[in-house]
Structures are given as C-alpha cells and as structure tokens.
Design a binder for these strands. Sequence first.
DNA 1: TCAAAAACTTACCATTTAGTATGTTTTACA
DNA 2: TGTAAAACATACTAAATGGTAAGTTTTTGA
Lengths: 195, 195
Amino acid sequence: MKKGEYTRHTILEKAFEISYKKGYQSTSVDDIIALTSVSKGSFFYHFKNKDEMGLAMINEIMYPGMYKALVIPLNENKPATQSIYDMIKSILIEDPAFDPRYGCPAVNIIEEMAPLNTSFNKALSRLIDEMQNTLEEVLTRGKKAGQICKELNVKESSVFIITSYMGIRNLGKLYGVDCYQVYLKELKRYLSSIE
Amino acid sequence: MKKGEYTRHTILEKAFEISYKKGYQSTSVDDIIALTSVSKGSFFYHFKNKDEMGLAMINEIMYPGMYKALVIPLNENKPATQSIYDMIKSILIEDPAFDPRYGCPAVNIIEEMAPLNTSFNKALSRLIDEMQNTLEEVLTRGKKAGQICKELNVKESSVFIITSYMGIRNLGKLYGVDCYQVYLKELKRYLSSIE
DNA sequence: TCAAAAACTTACCATTTAGTATGTTTTACA
DNA sequence: TGTAAAACATACTAAATGGTAAGTTTTTGA
C-alpha cells in the first residue's frame, strides 16, 4: 500500500505538469506514461479511466497547490488591501510554479473543462469557492479594522478581484509579463478605491 | 469562384460553432464536415490543414463578430463609463450569440491556443489590440469631455477592464449568469471610481 | 517466511485522428 | 455551348487515442 500510492502520486504530478502546458484534453495517457515510465496497465490499475485521473489531479494536486499559493498568504497579518495586492503580485511575478506563457493551471482547466464535465465543474467550483470565501473574510476583517470602506459589498468586490486575476492570466498568454505590470498598477488603484 | 467561397464560409461558420462549445483542439475535421455535409476532400481543398482553417476562422468569423459586439457599441455617443458598462452588460446578458456556459469564443481560444501556436497568438493579439485601443480612445475622449478623472492612466484602466471581462467569462462557466450580475455591480462601482 | 493481495508488464484492440490519392462533377466564362 | 479550371466525392492510410486481457512480479503483514 506504500509503493502504489507513490506511483499514483507521480502520475498525478506529471499529468498536472503536462496538462498545464498542453491542456487537459490534449494530454494523452500515452504522454503521461511516457514521462513517468509507468506502464499503461499500471496507469489503468490506479485510475479506471482518464477522467477519474483528471478529477484526482484537481483534488490532490491543484487544490493543495492553490491553497498554498492563494489562501495561506491572504491570512498573513497585514492590512486587507495590502495582503490581497501582495498575494496577487507574488503569484504573478515571483512564484516559479507559474509560467506567464501558460497562465494559471486552475483558470486553464476551468476554461477548458467546466462546460464539458459536471464532476470537473464541481471540483473546480469548490476550489474557487475557497478562494472567494477567503477574500470575503479578508475584506470583512478589513472593514472591522477600519481599513475598508463600510459601504463596500464584500461579495461583489471579491468576485471582481477574482475575475481580474483570471483575466490577467488570460491576457498574459498573449502579451507576457509586461501586461502583468500594467494590470498590477490598476489593481492597486482599484484596491485603494475600496479603502 | 462563387460556390467555393460559400462552402469555405460555411465550413468556417460551423467550425466556429462547434469549437465554441468543445474547444478548438477537440473539434475534429470529421466533426466539422459532419455538420456541414461537406466532404473531407472538399475541406482539404479549401484549407491545406486544420490549423490554416483555424486561423481563417479567427480572422474571418471571430474578428468581425467581436468587432460588431464590442467595438461598434463603444463608439456610440454616450458618456464614457456609461458606454463601457452598457457594452459589457449587453454582451454578458442580452446578446444571444454568447452562452454563459461556454463563455466568450475569443477568450476561449486565447486560453487554449495562444501558448501553443504563434500564428494563432498573432491573430488573437490583433483582435485584443483592437478592443484595447477602442477602450483607450473612449476613455481619452471621456477625459476631454470632463467625464473621466484627469489623472487616470487610460492604458492601465483599459487593461483592467478587459481582464475583468475575460475573467467573468471564465467564472461564468462555473457559476452561470448569477455571477454576471454580481460582477456588473462591482464593475459599475469601479467605473464610477474613475470618473 | 510465505501466501495472498497489490502492483505492475506486455501485447493487444477498436476507434478516431489529420491528411492524401485519384478520380468525377460542376461552374464560370470566352 | 464547349472547355478548362474549380469544386467536390470516395476510399484510403498511418499514427494516435483510450482502454482491456491475461499473465507476472513485488510487496506486505501475519
């Protein structure tokens, strides 16, 4: 029960790595086993089909990764708008797990799979809900601390922030990091407008 | 020379229709010819390969479509922020050419193909540049008309508006039209913050 | 240590994929 | 109206796809 779990996990990691660059549907089982030196029989021993693997990849690789990169940093003890700005700047500019050319793994797979597979949709909704809730909490705490305008609707604002992040990941695929800098300036302006 | 152009155009239209729902890479040539009742030989008479067809689809179907839905409405004679808000609301809520479940065709194909194909990337950049420039013009005109804050950086603001649009198309795939309404409220707030 | 369960391998299969070769029909226009 | 070019159809290919069958090796825990 140990060896198998290790194999399973490396399959998921490699699948994540390839599908981040090529897209989920265009990543074949053969692509994955080629990179893992796991046989096809072994692949299908661990997952009854490709989509079950994809779902596990979302839940076991993507979810923890996003949690670490997006949620944890938001709970540091900083002024609300500061901690939001820092987190977004950090994942856009500093985090080596992201490549501007390939965007954000979560955004990519939402774009590709949410309309096609309800199981994927559910798992991905759970991921974005987590992010959404954390943002709302930060903004609400900010209100109580007098850092955020009392009249602000925290739900609307956090949706707006998330959409801007999703969008800049998309735009970055066309124009590279240059547009990240432009985006960050206006994000800062927006954030100061809700203080 | 007439009949052929008609066939070519219906191929492009149907390819657009299917790939809007399934994604470009997952739309096969067989899918397209099945829906057009055009033979495979005829398909490859008009396009030397699938990607050449995809490129033509972007330039001949997507570009004009986006121009009509996004650019033209921005040049109506309204206050700057009003015309931006109305245009976005219109394509999100009213335009029957878009299905919230499937998002925005241009955003979809940027997400999927921009990292994988430089020809696609160029054609799509041209499309977004057009949108970007129009937004900048509207904001600049708004400044001159005293509707927009003089200190605003029009480039940064228009990038921010575009990213928010791209992002809400992504989020809409998870949550449907409900999140459009939430987004629009905060978009309105943002727009009034730049007045 | 040893047997049962877990983990893995190899060789295969049916289907789908983009693309081609070769020939036939249609169209435009002189 | 005749003919050359344009447009199309059919039947095919080789490679890639997700998945399976059947057997072999490795691991684990009593």
